[in-house]
Write a protein that binds this DNA or RNA. Structure first.
Lengths: 170, 170
DNA sequence: ACCATAAGTTCTATTTTAGAACTGTCAATA
DNA sequence: TATTGACAGTTCTAAAATAGAACTTATGGT
């Protein structure tokens, strides 16, 4: 599968992975949320090669996640700032950071703590249902095909189904 | 930067990216949450090459996200199922799907709808503060160094700071 | 004239991925 | 007995992506 093919998949996860599913894009976005805006600052704090950084910034601009804003005329210089579409990535970033906090920290503890200015406390992010407000777990969610589902998708026989069928016939 | 170096970074995001930050891992995990468990089923539904699939499954097992469970003795066959560590990735998956639902769908609409069995309604995931329950946005969060922060990190002068300093001196 | 800042671009070497074919084990079938 | 098919990989070569360093362009300061 080619990289570009992901954007066309009838799957919201695949399409998002087309935007952020590589080594560097998420790290660049982390820096954006930490108020980094300029080419050399991204490069210095990430250690990414300049080539890749230029490429990724271009991609994120193309997807409308970042916007180039001029801050100097001669020579023309730009800052990269998050659009609303980019700001909306915050729950993804936070859920990734939270999983790392729980499952990937070493003995020294968390690298960062997060304070919610609204209530003044250190917090963890919690994902809840928009309708009833209860915390979500995979077990309590059922998936339905939506209007954009793949047309006429005859449920492809799985290896397990084939095994079962063979066992029943034998 | 090498792939393995990410795991060592004092950053929960970088360490999580070391696990899920490539083209395929998130798509494999999507299939896991949709109850796919076997090699050939992953291969058929994703179109991933068998080589890469074997490699990624090995990696996810090594990180403790998936576990191999034998389901047949002769010949020995295994299913790949999510561990608790893997199930905890659900908020990441859901926030990615939700962003795609909002920002990446075409005219036909969402490929999938999600029903919360607990309350019976179609829902969207919402990320809230664990302490006050209010929805989170980047604007209302302040970041502090935690116990695992990079030791003696003298805040690296950014390009902007250098520019400002030069301007003040000039 | 010389150096520094800033944001890239270009180059080669290395690593990763795509795509297809091949291997090994066992069960059922002809 | 020989053949076929299921299943989970491994091996191979060609193509693509990435790393790492040097180079370019435009400008301002000493």
């Amino acid at each position: 599968m080619k990289w570009d093919a992901l954007e066309e998949e009838p799957c919201s996860l695949a399409r998002t992975v087309a935007v952020i599913g590589d080594r560097w894009s998420l790290l660049i976005l982390r820096e954006c949320f930490l108020r980094i805006r300029r080419f050399d600052d991204f490069q210095a704090s990430l250690g990414i090669t300049r080539h890749l950084l230029a490429d990724r910034l271009k991609k994120l601009v193309r997807f409308g996640v970042l916007r180039k804003i001029p801050y100097q005329e001669a020579p023309k210089r730009y800052e990269y700032i998050l659009t609303q579409k980019g700001l909306d990535l915050y729950p993804i970033i936070m859920s990734i950071v939270h999983w790392g906090n729980i499952h990937m920290v070493d003995a020294r503890g968390r690298p960062l703590l997060h304070e919610h200015k609204s209530c003044g406390k250190m917090f963890d992010p919690v994902m809840v249902c928009s309708e009833c407000g209860e915390p979500l777990s995979a077990k309590h969610v059922h998936v339905h095909p939506g209007p954009g589902a793949r047309r006429s998708s005859p449920v492809h026989a799985s290896a397990r189904e084939r095994t079962k069928r063979a066992a029943e016939q034998g």
